[in-house]
Design a binder for these strands. Sequence first.
DNA 1: TAGATTGTTAATCGATTAACAATC
DNA 2: TAGATTGTTAATCGATTAACAATC
Lengths: 214, 214
Amino acid sequence: MSETKERAYPVPSIRRLPLYLSFLRKLRDEKVEVVSSTRIAEELGLTGIQVRKDLAMTGIVGRPKIGHTINELVSHIECFLGWNQTRRAFLVGVGHLGTALLGYKGFQQENLDILASFDTSPQKIGKEILGRPIYPLSRFEEKAKELNVQCAILTVPAQFAQETADLMVKAGIQGIWNFAPVQLFVPEGIIVENVSLSSSLAVLSQRMNSQKTV
Amino acid sequence: MSETKERAYPVPSIRRLPLYLSFLRKLRDEKVEVVSSTRIAEELGLTGIQVRKDLAMTGIVGRPKIGHTINELVSHIECFLGWNQTRRAFLVGVGHLGTALLGYKGFQQENLDILASFDTSPQKIGKEILGRPIYPLSRFEEKAKELNVQCAILTVPAQFAQETADLMVKAGIQGIWNFAPVQLFVPEGIIVENVSLSSSLAVLSQRMNSQKTV
DNA sequence: TAGATTGTTAATCGATTAACAATC
DNA sequence: TAGATTGTTAATCGATTAACAATC
């Protein structure tokens, strides 16, 4: 009966960490060695308190009057996010968006390694995208176990999203990065993170609309 | 001195509206005519209260014991989001992601019409992507005014994001859909909506990490 | 009518912001 | 030392959830 309701870290805070990381890397390239939370806040349009709270989450301790060492900050954030070690992933659904993600260079910084992709279209199966093979979806489980892959990117059309997620779960996938505009139902313990273009566009569009009337 | 602090609608609520829309369209295809908030909630893994609050935002009024007419719901949500009328947009930065967005069919449902794209690379300028021309970035302002475009999609590399945004603002753009992992600074009144892949990946990754330790 | 559903008003929960003591 | 910065504890704000009256 362990009351391990261990307060998850606030999602908004976690979402800000990559912003800090990218600014810190820029400073490091400029040979800067130390930075204060105030300085970070100014650059990113946040408040100092917010930055300190967020950084505290990673367990880092700064020095009053000085601030934080950039190298130390970077490694603390990376460790907290699990970006210090390579995470192997598969991608399912080699359409426009899937292809774009396969070609996205930015994932190197986040240590995400998309080893292979899967599709059901005979036209695509057997080809390669930037050195990574496209396998038939039927081989997903076999390959996931062979390569010990625990993370999957889901970029199939909405109507196939749930069944694809089911297949991923059956193959032992622990985390699904879902780009389909669908609410996935998965067993407890499986982590789903949604990227919803239409949700984002909705916010932009609604704001532009109400702006007009003002 | 008008105290027009007119309570903006909650972002989380706005973000859920496209989910409702997609479910409602599916029901409509199945010739269903009426639906209750409880039913919507079940399907999307939400609570009935939440759904009613969200729908109330669009100004729709339902009928006790009955629920809502699907057609009426769809049109209320579409109007609220401004998806009932076509929104013309430009895209700047024809890389992997930009190309994917240009090819994304889903925007038709959201009535977003990407008329043209812009880039600085001579290899790309003058070509077409799915019938839409790629112009040199230097012609952005001219074209924006000519076609009365008020919405721009920003898919350039991080280091060029701010200057591109400045150029967009100068050209009279009212809303920027920003895919660069950068905090943009824009004049008041200009709307920026960020899509941050790295923020989303951070949440997934951190969760998978802490899952492991449990 | 009885029961299901809507929609409002109040309570809770969580994130942000403010205040301030500790410290180099 | 004085001043800048950290990090904690308390207050505020906003979104979600709960309770419940209204209604077809």
